[in-house]
Every structure is written in C-alpha cells, then in structure tokens.
Nucleic acid binder design. Structure first.
Lengths: 118, 118
DNA sequence: ACAACATATGCCGGTCGCCGATATATATAG
DNA sequence: CTATATATATCGGCGACCGGCATATGTTGT
C-alpha cells in the first residue's frame, strides 16, 4: 500500500462513501452536492479511481442491483478506507491550521507602523 | 490560471512561505519541520514546483544572496499566492468537516443494538 | 416518431505534478 | 580526505486525473 497523500477527487470519493454505500453515478452527484456544484468528478476519473481503491482495499463492492432496468454497482467504504480517511482528515486539519496560523503571523515587509523597530 | 486543487507538496510550499520569505533548500527543511518529519519534499519536486508557481504568479523571487559562499534564491508568496492559499485552506476546511461529519453520522449496517428499529 | 437529456458503466490517450536518480559546487565535521 | 550538510538544477518515468468516446436504458419535450 502506498502511503502517499490522497488527491482531492479521491478524498471526496471516500468522503461521499463515509456515511453510507453508494453507486458510481450517485457518487458523482453526491460530490457535486458536497462541493456546492464546484467539483464534478469525470467518469474517466471515477471508474479508474474505483478500480484502484478496490485494489487497495479501501472500498468494497457491497452489492449489485438493477433499478429501472439500469445496472448498478454499490460501493461501500472498507475498514481500511475508513482508517485512511480518518488519517487523511487529521493530517489535513493540521496543515490547514498551520497555513492559517502562518498567514496570520505573516511578517509584513512593506508597511510598518511609525516608531516600530526596523 | 488553472483553478485545479493544489496537491499537498504544493500546498505545503505555499504554507511554508506564508509567514516569511525563504529559499529553496530552507523550504525543504521548513516543511519537514511543519510535518514533524513526515514529509520530505524532493529536490526534483521542489525546483520544478517553484518554476511552475513562479510562472503562475503565486510566488516571486524576492532577492538573490550569497551566504557562506553558497548562492541562494529567496522566494516570497505573491498576492495571488496568498489568495490561492486562503481559498484552498477554506475549501479543505469544508471538505475535512464534511468527511468528519459523515464518518460520525455513518450508517452502521452489520451491528445494531438489540431493540433498535430495522 | 424522434430528439434531447438523465441515468449508468466503462475504456483510452494525453497532460502534468510528483518521485528517484543524478550532477555540480562549496563549507564543515570526523 | 572522506563524508555530510548546504544549495541549486535537470531528466526519465509513474500514476492520478481529465476529456472524449462508446454503449445502453428510461424519461421528457416537440
């Protein structure tokens, strides 16, 4: 297993599966909803990513079903995927906090209040 | 400008520049410190990324100097980089919160307390 | 009847950020 | 005098993602 940080589409996929199992096309819609319409995962990304995540053991095929004559595969987050998602969110929380701390603690170079030390 | 989400090495680079300007090699050390030694940016990643970020206008070369006989280029976060970093942290904060909310709201399928509704 | 769109899965070529290795050069430590 | 730290830079390759295409059924509009 590669411990490399997840890219955002992958992170969103796992996030969309975190509360309940969903099928591929449903994930696209769910992610679009999560991101207020900003992120639209492409099918080329989706099915490739699902295959990869299956192989990595982060997700599982929970069941296959036919609804309105259309075949579906329903994916569920595996235990390892849950662990990976938890670890990733924790990591990202720290990075985000650090970025915000640094932006606030920024050393202003150009403007300086009069009387301040050089 | 491509509005695509930043990958983590890039995010960490901008984060490391958020408080004050630094030079390339110093960024590697700073990022290693930020991440408690977990992330070690490779030089192949670093200088390629710096070139890219320069071209995207997210960072600037603030000055060039020679310290102890070694040449340095000192990079600073540009205004656009600051905006990009702020936007990215805000986006990530939302994604992280959503992921955590969903993990907590998870629908447990296998185990169910006795007497609970189906 | 036919077109357009939503639902649903899947493949393939290309792009691009990251990795690993390599190269170059100076200063310091053993 | 060799190894390590500092410092910059290039190159080949990998892999995630994108955009486009293909396929098939169901629904809506004209």
């Amino acid at each position: 297993m590669s411990d490399r940080p997840l890219q955002e589409p992958t992170l969103l996929l796992l996030t969309a599966l975190a509360d309940e199992p969903r099928h591929g096309y449903g994930l696209i819609q769910e992610i679009e909803a999560i991101s207020q319409g900003r992120v639209r995962i492409r099918t080329g990304t989706l099915y490739g990513a699902l295959d990869r995540l299956l192989q990595q053991g982060l997700i599982q095929v929970e069941r296959e079903e036919v609804v309105d004559g259309r075949a579906r595969k329903v994916y569920a987050l595996a235990e390892e995927g849950r662990r990976a998602l938890a670890a990733e969110t924790q990591r990202l929380r720290a990075v985000v906090a650090e970025a915000e701390r640094r932006m606030a603690a920024r050393r202003v170079l150009a403007v300086r209040p009069k009387g301040a030390p050089a």
